[in-house]
Simulated scan of single mutants.
Amino acid sequence: MKLRKVTAASATVFALALTATACGSGDDGDSGSSGDKKITVGIKFDQPGLGQKTPQGYEGFDVDVATYVAEKLGYSEDQIEWKESKSADRETMLQRGDVDFIAATYSITPKREEKVDFAGPYLLAHQDVLISADDDSIKKPEDLNGKNLCSVTGSTSAQNVNDKLGLKANLQNYPTYSACLGGLENGAIDALTTDDSILAGYAAQKQFEGKFKLAGFKMTNENYGIGVKKGSDLKAKINEALEAMVADGAWDQAVKDNFGPANYQNEPAPKIGDIKS
C-alpha cells in the first residue's frame, strides 16, 4: 500500500531506538533471531475502509495506523500477526494477552478504561447517516422523523436517534451494514446510521462510488483509541508513534487513501489525550 512504502522508510531511525524494549508476542526477552520476533495486533476483519481482510491481505485506515505504529515499535510489516477483534471480545483479548494492542474502531469510554488503557485518540468520528446521493430531503437530523432508518441488529446507533436525540424515525433491523446498503440502494430504507468513518468506508467501495453521501450530522463524538493491557508501557510508545504519524503527513495520507472516494469530511487529527465528550 502507498502508505506503507512511505512509513517503512520513515520509521527506521525511531524503530532502531525502540526495538530493544518493544513488546511483542514473540519477544520474551531472549536474544533469539530478529526473524522470529512478532507483534500481535487486533483489528476488525469486516469493516471496509477501516479494517478488512481481503484475498490480498489486510487493508483500511485502522490497518494503516496499526502498521505505522508497529513499525515505530521496531516491527516490520511481515512481523505483524493480525488477529480479528470483534467488539464484544476486545477487553478480554487484551486482558488475556491474546494481542499486544488493538486498533479496531475502538471508542474510548470511561467504562472501557476501567478494564484497559488507551493510547490516542487517533481519530474523532461522529454518528452520522448515509443517504442516497440524490436525496435532498434529509438535510438535518429532524428530517429523519418518519423516515425508514436502517439499524444493524445488535447496534445501538439507530436506537440513539430515537432515544437520545428524541427523533421519530422508523427503525428497520438488518443483519449487516452491507444489507443496509442494499436496502438504501433499492429504496427500501431512507438512511443508514453508525459512525461516519464506518459509513465512509462502505460508501468508498468501488461498487458504491457515487451512489451514497454522508449527511454530515455530528450526533455523537466517538474517540477512537488504541487499546492496550492495563498498565502496559506500550501506551506511551504508541502515543509517540501516533504523534509522529501526524507530524510526517502519513495520517493525512491514510485518510485520503481509505476514505477519499466517499468525500469524508474528517476532523483534524486529534491531540493525544484530548477526549471529546
Rank of each mutant, 00 (worst) to 15 (best):
A125C: 12
A119M: 07
R90G: 10
G35F: 10
H126P: 07
R4Y: 14
L123R: 04
F101R: 00
P121Q: 05
A119H: 10
T40E: 06
A103P: 00
V99I: 07
F14L: 11
A66H: 06
V13S: 12
E77S: 15
V129A: 06
Q47S: 05
Y106A: 07
V69I: 12
A66Q: 08
K83S: 11
P121C: 04
D64F: 10
S31W: 12
L94R: 06
K115R: 12
S85F: 03
A11V: 05
A88T: 15
K115Y: 11
G120M: 07
T7E: 07
R112G: 02
Q127G: 08
M1W: 13
A88G: 14
I43R: 05
D89R: 14
D78V: 12
E113F: 10
F14H: 10
S85L: 06
V63P: 00
K38R: 11
G57P: 07
V41K: 00
V129F: 03
T21C: 03
L94G: 04
V41F: 04
S10R: 11
P55W: 03
R96A: 11
A70N: 04
V116S: 02
T105I: 07
T105E: 06
V129H: 01
L16R: 12
S31R: 12
S76C: 14
E71D: 14
P55L: 07
E81F: 09
A20H: 07
C23Y: 04
D98K: 13
S34F: 11
K38Q: 13
F14Q: 08
E84N: 13
V13Y: 10
P110Q: 09
A104I: 03
S31D: 12
Q127F: 05
